[in-house]
Simulated assay, not measured.
Amino acid sequence: MIIKSKRIYMEDGLKDGFLVIEEGKIKEFMRSTDAEDVIDYGNMRIIPGIFDTHNHGTCGYGLMDKGTRETIAGYLKGCASQGITGVFPTAGLSMISAVADAAAENLEGAQILGIHSEGPWLNRTGEKGIKTGWPEVSIDTAKQMVSDGKGLLRLVALAPEIPGIDSVIEYFLSEGITLALAHSDANYEEAKRAYKKGFSVSTHTGNVMTGMHHRDVGGLGAALLDNEVSSEVICDGMHICPEMLQIYFRIKKPEHFMMISDCTPFSGAPEGSYLGFEQGMTINVSKDGFVLTDTGRLMGSSQPVLYGISVLTEKLGMPMETVWPMFSLNPCRKYGFDKEKGSIRAGKDADFTVITNDYRAAATFVMGRKVYDMEEGPVFNPDFLKEWGREEIPHE
């Protein structure tokens, strides 16, 4: 298979030419060819495949509480429709085993490269400082998570200040699992100690952590000042305002960031109101695709990494050459996939995405196989609206 584009973002620069794909690998790049059987994408950009390491759901499919093989298959196809070639599904405890089983099936869509568990031991305080508590710290639960993961549990996010959590931290580290500081009320010194203890990722940096103050730069400052920490970042311009993103990238080089979506099943949902998780609760999807409670509080993310790419390149004026490693090569390096994945280069897996000028995925390729084409039409879960009680909510 030969792919042509005038704008291919390769590891060694932007190029106009042809990618030769053989047996799932990029065999070579050519400036010209006499071959007639060429897939020509014209001036559409070809970028390295997105590796999203923090993604709870998308396109009406979720992985938190319940789900079947079909749920996971729909989720992976939905990821591919958003340009994702590799993913760490962020699974609820009851879904870890099913996701691990699905990873062995080679389902069509994004490739499962590992499993991420956000919690269950989190100290979520939020901007209003309301403490919600956490489940009992249990080494047995931690061991069950590892067992259910069948060798694929790669990332666990915890709040390091929770009493009694040290034994769980030590256990996960002994199993070779990466730990992320998440949903934490830790101040600067506490966060700094956690990173010295073995935490090496900051979960959705800036969100649900103590912020920067001139007398204590908090969990955010600890993440930004430590170059040994790989910092997840949501770049939709709403979770972190564009001006703060600029500050991030001035304090810490882009090579230390990993773009994530933190998407939920509401990613891609039609604008409107939905019944919430609790009686009387309403979830609102805005015209811009953001998921909000009636009070305006963000409920996870709804915009994919591709949208974040558009914010960085179009609103902040960052060159794609600076941006693409943050959504592909950096996470691949962090989790040990960079020899095979993370950039478009001869010898690597043919994982790449063709994008339109408005930052939608026109086609997504995983190991040389086209797993999504926008001509297929919608991939949104047809049962989602019914499950979430989509209806006209009366407004007084």
Rank of each mutant, 00 (worst) to 15 (best):
residue 262 D to P: 11
residue 143 K to N: 06
residue 314 E to V: 12
residue 147 S to K: 15
residue 26 I to L: 05
residue 169 I to V: 15
residue 124 R to C: 13
residue 162 I to P: 00
residue 3 I to V: 11
residue 152 L to P: 00
residue 336 G to D: 04
residue 26 I to D: 11
residue 350 A to S: 09
residue 277 F to E: 15
residue 167 S to H: 12
residue 35 A to I: 11
residue 99 V to Q: 00
residue 191 A to E: 03
residue 379 V to P: 00
residue 310 S to W: 02
residue 24 G to M: 04
residue 239 H to C: 04
residue 55 N to T: 15
residue 53 T to V: 15
residue 305 V to E: 01
residue 320 M to S: 06
residue 355 I to P: 04
residue 236 D to F: 07
residue 355 I to M: 06
residue 155 L to P: 06
residue 283 I to H: 12
residue 256 H to W: 05
residue 209 M to I: 10
residue 347 G to Q: 08
residue 234 I to R: 00
residue 44 M to G: 04
residue 73 A to G: 07
residue 380 F to M: 01
residue 380 F to C: 03
residue 91 A to T: 09
residue 146 V to I: 11
residue 381 N to P: 08
residue 337 F to C: 02
residue 157 A to M: 10
residue 269 A to H: 05
residue 82 Q to H: 15
residue 45 R to I: 10
residue 79 C to K: 08
residue 353 T to Q: 01
residue 217 V to T: 12
residue 362 A to I: 08
residue 23 E to Q: 14
residue 134 W to D: 06
residue 27 K to G: 03
residue 286 S to D: 13
residue 386 K to I: 14
residue 326 M to H: 01
residue 85 T to G: 03
residue 285 V to Y: 07
residue 239 H to L: 08
residue 260 I to R: 01
residue 200 S to T: 13
residue 198 G to K: 04
residue 300 G to P: 09
residue 185 D to C: 10
residue 394 P to R: 13
residue 284 N to G: 06
residue 383 D to K: 13
residue 30 M to L: 15
residue 147 S to D: 10
residue 9 Y to K: 09
residue 115 I to N: 00
residue 51 F to V: 11
residue 148 D to H: 12
residue 253 K to Q: 15
residue 31 R to S: 12
residue 149 G to T: 03
residue 235 C to A: 14
residue 267 S to T: 07
residue 350 A to I: 02
residue 186 A to K: 03
residue 104 A to L: 14
residue 132 T to E: 14
residue 173 L to G: 03
residue 171 Y to F: 14
residue 384 F to G: 01
residue 350 A to V: 02
residue 4 K to V: 01
residue 92 G to C: 13
residue 8 I to W: 03
residue 111 Q to L: 14
residue 40 D to F: 12
residue 344 I to N: 05
residue 187 N to W: 02
residue 57 G to N: 04
residue 124 R to I: 15
residue 387 E to S: 14
residue 287 K to P: 01
residue 354 V to R: 02
residue 76 L to D: 00
residue 41 Y to F: 15
residue 290 F to M: 14
residue 28 E to C: 11
residue 51 F to E: 10
residue 112 I to L: 08
residue 3 I to C: 06
residue 153 L to A: 06
residue 172 F to V: 08
residue 7 R to T: 11
